[in-house]
Write a protein that binds this DNA or RNA. Structure first.
Lengths: 361, 361
DNA sequence: ATGAAAGCGCTAACAA
DNA sequence: TTGTTAGCGCTTTCAT
């Protein structure tokens, strides 16, 4: 005998459709459709009857059919390069929460940096992007022609896009201001020989003006500004080259620094991952942070609170970033006919003063 | 004048369909469908003509329509509780790579632990699960009735399911064996007063047999086994209670331990996050790892290599885990009629001996 | 407030 | 090898 509720559902395999629910409730499929989507124009008693029937039959709906007809999936897709990178994982956590709160369903994909893979996820898997109503993309190494082309076709928001032309709206980290604050903090903590751990080699102001490879140029500009404002020179000697922004490359750089005889008393890193790697690599050689050298990160990842020493950093306001990205994307989704002018917004940051830049007591 | 290729595409807004491509290539839609899916039965010359036409028109396909008709999306969904937790982010990185390599499209969602949210993602957002051909779920705090019910309906694989009845196939971490190896390693490193940092309070063997709340019981069993095998007692005194497996709770526990006067020379943690938090919290009170106390993690997250000291841990073989999960799921997807017997597989691990359990030289 | 008809874009099955 | 037909489950539109 039926007790009602979910446990009654038979594992028949046959899909329960709107029609089945309609039949069970004794109404037309259209009424069921409206009732289940909380649309007006259904009597409360009818709605309740329908809900009961849907529940009894274990109705699940079919987003494909819905999307096919209505052209909307209610899904916002977020694309990042990798999952196991502290910045991305924090970004994903915050932005998917924001998407849910705005009533959309977040789906996450990754590209793993390769433009080929991005191409695949957009071309070979050519069906996949009809799944979402819009995309939020943080994919540094990507083929921007492709992103540009895609963003023309459908609602798209970018993170940290630094191309000179403004083709797609983006929300950016406070690359220049943040880096300036980072170097300023090292100076405030008494550092006089400051290094910049950077994938971008030293560039003159003019060269920097014309360089648009990701976030490195504005960050170097910000660092340079802080040097100059404090009457310090900024030369190639202040740049510590690394091959990438991962922990491993920073460890290598640390070993190199130690081999050459550490010539800095403060190092500003381009992100928290490289700062954490740097501290690890310095520890390998018995160099202590913050005693021997102070280290600044950039991003504000979760793990920075838990390392020993904890990591001083420029904590990007990711909640604000998420709100802007999602808000502007939904604007595009829900007003598809309005011609939007691409915009670029920079979010705020907080200087987190922690152990890695503490002055020994 | 048209130069061919992607830049020709007009941003007309009108969707390009198979029919458009067929018209352009002068063939039937069905032929286009076959050609684009690399199905046999299309002459190479025809295929090339179709490909050219599709490219010229900027055809993107519509997964909803395809899914509606064929019943397959080619998508495998992965559900975790959170993104910004080192274990989950590593798991996601590895499993999404494996899914891609097997020719499916990975999509990731999160539940944020709340059964209500899981309910939402399965009920309120009731359409979303018709998007994927199958699901891989690592959602500790979830309503298992619901998962069970869902897994009856569609291909599903679980991670670390520890329920007594076997309703859905799962792949598990080496909870018991790993923890045993963890404690054994502490003993091998000379520890004689060993604590277990655990959310589960101390339990007798009998109680442990009947406890099935997640992975804690098998892990405590494993720890207990190591104690006994080395002629050591395992009592309530060996359990250090924590409120959760996050870094923050471990920091609290460390402070408590320090306040009470540290009575351990080795501590085995249930995961790397709590181990990292513990080390951080001990450092707050001037207690040094590994000098004053050695610490073992569990999981093998990326960050454990970069902390100071680096973290000794039980590195779960996540590649193997991913292969098993994806392989078995695809088996279910591609052979929907075969009655599968639910299975539970335990993957291997590697003991990573690192700084946090090093013997001072 | 409710219902009937049409069709979104695709592909399985079958026909030529 | 290529083409025709039918219809997946839903929602828009237009009746009633």
């Amino acid at each position: 005998m039926s007790t009602g509720g979910i446990m009654d559902i038979e594992a028949t395999g046959r899909t329960v459709t709107l029609k089945d629910v309609a039949q069970e409730a004794g109404v037309a499929t259209m009424t069921v459709s409206k009732a289940l989507r909380n649309q007006p124009g259904v009597k409360t008693s009818t709605r309740n009857r329908i809900l009961a029937a849907a529940n009894k039959l274990g109705y699940r709906g079919n987003i494909s059919a819905s999307a096919l007809k209505s052209g909307k999936t209610g899904i916002i897709r977020v694309i990042v390069n990798e999952f196991d990178v502290p910045f991305y994982s924090k970004f994903l956590e915050i932005i998917t929460t924001e998407i849910s709160e705005k009533g959309y369903i977040p789906f996450v994909q990754k590209t793993h940096y390769s433009p080929i893979t991005l191409q695949e996820s957009l071309d070979n898997n050519f069906l996949a992007d009809s799944m979402s109503d819009g995309d939020i993309i943080h994919a540094s190494g990507s083929d921007f022609d492709q992103i540009r082309e895609m963003s023309r076709r459908r609602p798209t928001m970018l993170v940290d896009s630094c191309t000179p032309q403004l083709v797609t709206s983006s929300v950016n980290c406070p690359n220049e201001e943040g880096m300036r604050a980072s170097v300023q903090h090292l100076i405030d903590q008494g550092c006089t020989r400051i290094g910049l751990l950077s994938r971008l080699p030293f560039m003159t102001p003019t060269e920097l003006m014309n360089s648009h490879i990701g976030v490195a140029p504005p960050r170097m500009r910000g660092a340079r500004a802080a040097f100059l404002e404090n009457g310090m020179e900024f030369t190639a000697d202040n740049v510590i080259p690394i091959d990438g922004l991962g922990e491993e490359q920073a460890i290598e750089a640390a070993h190199r620094l130690a081999n050459e005889g550490l010539r800095f008393d403060g190092i500003a890193c381009m992100n928290d991952s490289s700062a954490i790697g740097l501290i690890r690599g310095l520890a390998d050689r018995g160099i202590s942070v913050p005693k021997d050298v102070k280290v600044m990160g950039f991003d504000g990842v979760r793990m920075g609170e838990f390392t020993v020493p904890s990591l001083s950093t420029i904590a990007v306001d990711m909640e604000q970033m998420a709100k802007l990205l999602v808000g502007q994307l939904i604007e595009q989704i829900e007003h598809p006919n309005e011609q939007i002018t691409p915009s670029r917004t920079t979010v705020g940051f907080n200087l987190r003063k922690r152990g890695s830049t503490a002055i020994a007591s």
